[in-house]
Design a binder for these strands. Structure first.
Length: 106
DNA sequence: CAACTGACGATAG
DNA sequence: CCTATCGCCAGTT
């Protein structure tokens, strides 16, 4: 373990997302050290979301929307978030002012 | 080793 | 609001 490659770091970051909060790909990548590595975050979720028990449903894109295609996880993720108290507006977007995870801002 | 692939992001039109 | 395009980087093929 210990901090190693960027990928492992991303996993650690995702595990830190608190209940009822969400984070977007670029944010996670930035915290992990590479603000341009949003795509690696995608890969990490694909390869370790289930085996490492990551709260993958708390990861969305910067538009405050779920990136999964409808019919292939979209509704499932939405449901999981709503179960944590996260609300969606009429456009199915999450209000970052209320639900974005802000680690360096209480 | 080269090419391909992504649950992305920003910019331009 | 929408599509198109480029950039970025690691894991796969």
């Amino acid at each position: 373990m210990t901090e190693l490659n960027f990928t492992s770091l991303v996993k650690q970051v995702i595990k830190q997302i608190p209940y009822g909060k969400v984070a977007f790909y670029g944010q996670i990548a930035s915290i992990a050290g590479n603000h341009r590595a949003a795509r690696q975050v995608v890969r990490v979720l694909h390869s370790s979301s289930t085996k490492d028990a990551l709260p993958w449903h708390r990861v969305i894109n910067k538009q405050g929307k779920i990136s999964l295609p409808i019919g292939n996880g979209y509704e499932k993720q939405k449901h999981l978030l709503q179960a944590e108290g996260v609300e969606f507006d009429s456009s199915d977007r999450i209000d970052f002012k209320r639900f974005l995870w802000q680690p360096d801002n209480h």
